[in-house]
Design a protein around this nucleic acid. Structure first.
Lengths: 177, 177
DNA sequence: ACCTGAACACCGTTCAAGT
DNA sequence: ACCTGAACACCGTTCAAGT
């Protein structure tokens, strides 16, 4: 199999999903691809950039986006999108850290995160306030996923409702009046 | 100077404040204390537990807490406490990661985080919903600090108002109706 | 009780040299 | 153009042995 940017990133996604971020090292990745570590650096600049591309692969899927016209209120579309993100990230170990790396270097556009802002504007917020609301909701999604995943690690039995949704509803209500 | 748990944790806090989490390694810490790495493990169980104690040192100061009776509405006390936390964590590099480690192992009680929940109960939330509201606000504080610190790292000029406070107000409004 | 010395099993990144 | 081999400068944790 030819070593390309695509195969590198896809294998990285695989390792992340199966074993978590702690096992997603450049060396482990090289071993999985049957090459030397140095070879990876011909296809990706560094680990940060790799993680940003992993995040893009995870989020830039049409499955996550939401069709605004299918909801009678923008707030409902926002709630649905936030839930989609939460549920998609939950089963992927350490996904919040990966997403944070990607948004920190803002090199990559994460479609559902952009849509979050668009929907807030559609709900009547100024473009500035839509950015701030986006931040609040993203913080809540990533923080809640991280918190839940930590519970699993300490194998506490996770209840079906973990309070994410209640707080999400209150936050959206506060944002769109 | 005698090597004790106290000196170990205090030196760790120093390194964190001056150089950030990347430089806070057990080896670097040992060097700073003029001992071998192994010696540290007599005084702390592992790095996780050390970070939890660092987090406690950072947050368990009366400066951060808020006197509820000085505010005419519980919501105002909540806002003040959240701002105190945000402003205290902002100058400490990578403080969100450290706090997250501490809350994840919940071995340590972080006073201001507890007060956040108490104030939400005082504002009329059920104890369950107060926990969920606490999660929302903590997620927003830590997420916003992390976001701002990443901007500094990429030396983008930080504006005075970064939207933290606007979103905070909307969130609190949504929580306490 | 407390610490040293040394090892074990890892990291990310770089780069001359090969093909 | 793409990859190997090998190095550089690190990690966290453990543990026999010393005092």
């Amino acid at each position: 199999m030819a070593l390309t940017q695509l195969t590198v990133v896809d294998t990285a996604v695989d390792i992340l999903q199966q074993f978590g971020l702690a096992d997603l090292s450049m060396r482990r990745l090289a071993k999985e691809l049957d090459v030397q570590v140095g070879a990876l650096y011909w296809h990706v600049k560094n680990k940060q950039e790799l993680l940003a591309q992993v995040a893009a692969k995870l989020l830039n899927t049409p499955q996550l986006s939401v069709k605004a016209e299918e909801f009678n209120a923008p707030a409902d579309a926002i709630l649905q999108l936030a839930r989609n993100l939460y549920l998609a990230l939950l089963p992927i170990q350490d996904s919040p850290e990966v997403i944070e790396v990607a948004t920190a270097m803002q090199a990559t556009e994460l479609a559902p995160v952009l849509q979050l802002r668009e929907l807030l504007e559609a709900a009547g917020l100024s473009s500035e306030n839509a950015r701030h609301g986006q931040q609040l909701l993203l913080n809540h999604i990533l923080g809640s996923v991280a918190f839940r995943q930590n519970l699993v690690q300490l194998d506490v039995d996770s209840p079906i409702s973990d309070g994410f949704d209640w707080a999400l509803q209150r936050a959206v209500a506060g944002l769109v009046n």
